[in-house]
Amino acid sequence: MKTSANVLSNIKLENKFIFFIKNIIMWCIALTLLMPLFWMLSASFKRDNIEVFSFPIKWIPENPTLDSYYFLFKPNPVVNISQSFMNSILVVLIISVASFFTCVFAAYAFSRMEFVGRDVIFIFVIISMAVPPELLIVPHFVTYSMMGVVDTLAVLCIGPIFANAFGTFLIRQTFLGIPKSIIESAKMDGASHLTTLFRIIVPLAKETIITFLLLQFTWVWNNYMGPLLWIKSSDKYTIPLAIKILQELSDAGTPVIMAGSVLSIVPIILIFITFQKYFEKSVISAGVKG
């Protein structure tokens, strides 16, 4: 009796030890992956390039200073960082709200409405996902010129709002998983399409929709190619382009560039951590099937 108890506690101890070691290893891996970001953070508080590149690396600056952050927002001839931030926020907000409606409507039509040619059209929607917009820059250039939207913020919004096959597909798949009986009973009660959609279906697909908006938020916020191609005037730059232009055309040192990078990354990390719960639920618990 005594011996078996000993064995048991030994196993427990061993498990605890393994658990402990596993944690240390995984956290080391995670922190190593984040090392470049720590380097960026620390560089943004340093005074100049000499301090940034001095070796051995000083992870904690000796005399941390906020000068780079002040410099960033000081009026400067090449870019206006605070304006760029406003532009980025504006574009992200417009796209999030508008694409929510266009994608949810299309997803509902392709999953819960009957109309001629529905499934054929949907196949075209799916196939379009294999054609990345990054490869269609020439025709888009012509289309956007014809629409007269080049060098306005609207040019950044059109694609994600009106040609969002990914969002349509993702949300449609979730809508399909909602039991028909729930929708039928709503229809019995005389609910219109809009009521059914926003009162019953959208709340049930909350996790997928939030995941979609979260992923899209990161894509739009980080979009560098769009502004690079279509935006020419500096008062319409979004954050990624503004940082790039600042690095190319001004005498800002590495600390300033890193300060800009920190400010461009912080919002996205905060948003991600806030909504991580939903993201994990829809990616991890559901898994990707095929």
Binding site: F105, T143, T168
Partner: peptide
């Protein structure tokens, strides 16, 4: 109604992609 609901996406994908 079906076309109306899916129109924004269909129009955008037809013009921008196809």
């Amino acid at each position: 109604k079906g076309y109306l609901f899916s129109l924004p996406q269909i129009a955008g994908i037809s013009i921008l992609v196809y």
